[in-house]
Design a protein around this nucleic acid. Structure first.
Lengths: 144, 144
DNA sequence: AATTGGTTTGCAATTGAGTTGCACTTAATG
DNA sequence: CATTAAGTGCAACTCAATTGCAAACCAATT
């Protein structure tokens, strides 16, 4: 499964989120929109125009503001880094598969967990070693 | 939901995994067994006997060998660190809830994802901001 | 056009989780 | 006990991510 973000427009997305259209924000957002899977901050840096290299701090700050405004989703890995993907209406929440060897994270169909597990049990596309399901937010005690 | 590891025995677990029963491995495993939720490496270090502080490198190496032998599961967070929980038969794979404010990860009932979402929609125990589902292992291309 | 003030960016330095190399110590076995 | 491989501690290091601060940019006035 590849991401289906072709419909997302960088300029409109920024405007809709109330963010000004700076060169750097546009560049980062377009890289994420064009990606065929979740990217790390380093991946994004590598894909920026070499003639106008964006500082890595700027990339982290842009990712942070995009995440805050729910333009993108942040996907933690057990390799000590986060990956990012579009969170637009064309790309609903879905499971991912992370290959420990090539370190590429691929998107899976937006099935329920049980459906996904059944599907995988019947396929031999991947060897599944770990399953992580994590919800995050604020617990009742912290909301009071 | 609290972990139900009371039935796990540290010495037996190590023996079953073919690991020798060193003081440090026993201490780390007992801390994880007694925990009421996933712990970070730092959490474990803090809970070791102050009179026999275990080196942090040792803790990382122990966690790594436990993970490799599937004694524990590793749970990535978006805070740049991993948490660990027992992977024994008394503690099957289940979803987690991570509170971004108090930074405590709690275990949820081992429902399917869709059941869990329905359950949460009807409760007001947590405010859910993010849902992550991640499978990891080795993809077909890397297996060849 | 120049001024102002807030936002954004770049750079250098820092933090903190996790790792590595190597010497020392310990546990399992004979 | 004695041997030896396995395990541990310490110091130094790696690398993703963050912080502080100064410079650059941008929009909206005078």
């Amino acid at each position: 499964m590849t991401q289906t973000n072709e419909h997302c427009n960088a300029a409109e997305t920024l405007q809709g989120a109330g963010l000004s259209q700076t060169t750097q924000r546009m560049a980062v957002l377009e890289i994420i929109i064009k990606a065929d899977g979740p990217l790390s901050a380093a991946d994004i840096l590598n894909r920026t125009d070499p003639k106008q290299k964006i500082n890595k701090v700027t990339i982290y700050r842009i990712l942070s503001s995009f995440k805050e405004r729910r333009i993108i989703r942040e996907l933690p890995t057990d390799q000590g880094m986060n990956l990012y993907e579009m969170a637009c209406r064309h790309n609903p929440i879905h499971p991912h598969f992370y290959c420990k060897t090539c370190r590429i994270m691929s998107c899976l169909p937006p099935l329920t967990l049980s459906q996904a597990m059944d599907w995988f049990a019947g396929s031999n596309a991947f060897r599944i070693d770990d399953v992580h399901v994590n919800l995050s937010g604020v617990c009742r005690r912290c909301r009071e």
